[in-house]
Computed example of a mutant assay.
Amino acid sequence: MVDEDRLLDCLEAIRLNLPDAFNEAVDVVRQKESLLLQAEEYAQDIIEAAQQRAAEILDEMGIIRQAELEASHIRASVQQECEQIQQATLSEIEQMRQKSHQDIEQLRKMAMEECEDIQDGADEYADGVLSNIEQQLNDMLRVIRNGRQRLQNEPTKVTPPQGTANPPKKKA
């Protein structure tokens, strides 16, 4: 037998703890998006700065080419940083998901162990009650046997009712 209230309390605790883990994961994703936006803005600022610089020295073709190469290099560097940040964020989210899964599994195991303990306790209690009833029934059976034995060992004296000639016969 399972204590329904206790099981419901365990399930409620699991339900209340899960949103925290998911909220943390959502926060990590939001932080990742914020970092990506900042990186993109940073890259855009660098690109705009490079374009402005290139516009100032349009007459010098070598400098313009150098600026384009530099902007391309910076763009590639920023893109690489963004990818690294994204990978780190995804890794953190996966770790949090695995931890949440482990926590849920641990809570489930604890709930199952507690249910088994409750079941074992209920079985022991039922066995004790049945043993007690068995003892009482044995005591009653002994009293009944003793009473019957006394009745069979003692002759019964029955006085015939008035007006009858034959006394009732004793049953075996």
Rank of each mutant, 00 (worst) to 15 (best):
Q152P: 00
E41S: 07
G121D: 14
E70S: 09
M96Y: 01
L16K: 09
I64K: 08
Q38D: 09
A21E: 14
R53K: 14
R15G: 15
Q149I: 10
I133Y: 03
S72I: 07
L7I: 10
I14P: 01
E114R: 10
S100K: 07
D45S: 02
Q66N: 07
G163Q: 05
L16M: 08
N138A: 00
I93S: 01
Q102K: 00
Q119H: 15
A49E: 14
E105V: 01
S34F: 02
Q106P: 01
A111N: 10
E56A: 15
V143T: 06
P161I: 11
S131W: 04
Q66E: 12
Q119N: 12
L141M: 09
E68I: 08
L16V: 14
Q162D: 13
L107C: 10
Q149S: 09
L36I: 11
E94W: 05
L90W: 08
E41W: 06
T164E: 15
R53D: 11
Q79G: 07
I144F: 12
E12F: 02
I85C: 07
H101R: 04
A13W: 06
V26C: 03
R53M: 08
S91P: 00
V28S: 06
T159W: 05
P160S: 11
A126Q: 14
V26A: 10
H73Y: 10
R6E: 14
S91L: 01
Q80L: 13
Q87T: 02
K170W: 02
P168I: 00
C10N: 15
E60S: 13
C82M: 12
V26K: 12
R148W: 15
E4K: 14
E105D: 01
E124N: 15
A122T: 15
A55S: 13
A88N: 01
I93P: 00
L130E: 07
A49N: 11
E94H: 04
E114W: 07
Q102F: 02
Q44R: 01
E81L: 06
A111Y: 02
D27S: 07
D123C: 15
N132R: 09
Q66V: 03
I133Q: 00
E40C: 05
L58G: 13
A43I: 02
N166D: 15
D3C: 12
P167C: 05
E56Q: 11
E56G: 13
S131D: 12
D5L: 13
P168K: 02
E105Q: 03
G62V: 07
Q149R: 08
V158M: 02
E134I: 03
V28D: 06
K169E: 11
E70N: 04
I57E: 05
